[in-house]
Design a protein around this nucleic acid. Sequence first.
DNA 1: TTTCATATATTAGTATATCAGTTGAGGAGC
DNA 2: GCTCCTCAACTGATATACTAATATATGAAA
Lengths: 248, 248
Amino acid sequence: MPSRVPRKLASAPRPVASRIRRNRRPRGETAASRIYTDLRAELVSLARRPGEPISEAQIATAYGVSRTPVREAILKLSDEGLVEIFPQSGIFVSRIPIAALPETIIIRKSLEETTARTAAERASPSQLLDLHATIERQREACAAKDREAFHQADEMFHAGIAEVAGYPGIWKLILQVKVHVDRYRRLTLPQIGRMSEVIAEHGSILAAIEKHKPDIARAAMASHLERLLDNISEIQTLNPEYFDQPTW
Amino acid sequence: MPSRVPRKLASAPRPVASRIRRNRRPRGETAASRIYTDLRAELVSLARRPGEPISEAQIATAYGVSRTPVREAILKLSDEGLVEIFPQSGIFVSRIPIAALPETIIIRKSLEETTARTAAERASPSQLLDLHATIERQREACAAKDREAFHQADEMFHAGIAEVAGYPGIWKLILQVKVHVDRYRRLTLPQIGRMSEVIAEHGSILAAIEKHKPDIARAAMASHLERLLDNISEIQTLNPEYFDQPTW
DNA sequence: TTTCATATATTAGTATATCAGTTGAGGAGC
DNA sequence: GCTCCTCAACTGATATACTAATATATGAAA
């Protein structure tokens, strides 16, 4: 009983050096984290559609767990804006906030202008080869008309540039920010024709990085991402129930 | 009993139009949100010091609630990186990750270069007056040597520029990203001398915005925020237990 | 005194229970 | 048919209880 007080007093006023860097492991694979990962994938892939209700109890029984870890997962998804919680009413897959999409694309553009510019300053030959390989993989996916592989290679290219720049955290941030845009783009069946354009634009970016021309790389990345903005607001009445439209 | 099935089947395959925009209110002031807000303030203000343990049970009794809402708040803080959870061991105020600070400053710089540039394109006379007022408030705080008011006005200036640019979401994102830098800066007692420099730099930014010179505004903002980078890594051995240092 | 083993207390994660607010189907009245 | 009302069922938020894992205190052995 009295052991509690000394423990707290010993560490509260000033963490002792011995407390630094214990070999504690951060929380590993919990039921909550597993459910979170699964649910997030279902939401981003639109397997669960915008506006659709989500039942905590149903998921809990499906996973054979209680509602507690399910709730933890859903609360996290709520913070990300992927679901909306209405007290005593229900949890619903959030509709895509089209009005907010342009700003998130601009955020991404701002951040990737920086990674492209810095990558052009720092890229090593081996890193350049990796980026070339990624583009090549994208070409193959385009030839095979494999949308999924194309998209994966696309992400890898952008992540790779951030890596080369030495800013992997920037890519992680982008992943968080662009989630609604990803949902939107999955709705508008990506046109095959755009694929070769994307590859060409990636090629321009990489060429500038290879020549260590930061400003050109930045500009190439900027115009590449500006294409995203153009594609927004084309399909409006297509699936109106999926979008969070202003009250017209 | 049979009412459950029809309700689910009716909405699951396709959200019906009638379900759009009910007058449901999002979750309001819950016990969890109150505790989250309080705890976050304590963490950012360093009232709870890096490395210090946090007891769920203790907070629960302090607020007169159960562990559940406390846990919800702490999980959210864990996602933000303000606390670290070690299973079956304890929850601890996260140490300041100095190695990650430069990248977060660069993120902020990238984003605010955009807000400054766009603000210079769009600023209306009334908005310009607001920004001038904010700088004036900062001058008064400087004269009064009121650090807290100075810092508040500083935040308001940057938030105002994002607002003028039409990108309030960018400022919200910056608020999330810069939290560890804020903790760091609170540790290094902000030098009074720097205040007048900050005011001068803000003046340069605003002047460029006023003249609708996007590139100059962007550059002024960039150099303003680059000063943040200089101030890092000065105090290392000052309070080593507060920092998450590489294992030297 | 130091080292090692044991015991006890505390913890995060999860399970279960309770409560109050909301919804929507169905019925009464028109 | 239409409107309003009632009420049962479901929900999110919270409370309480349990479990396995970890750390610290204790004490024995060196």
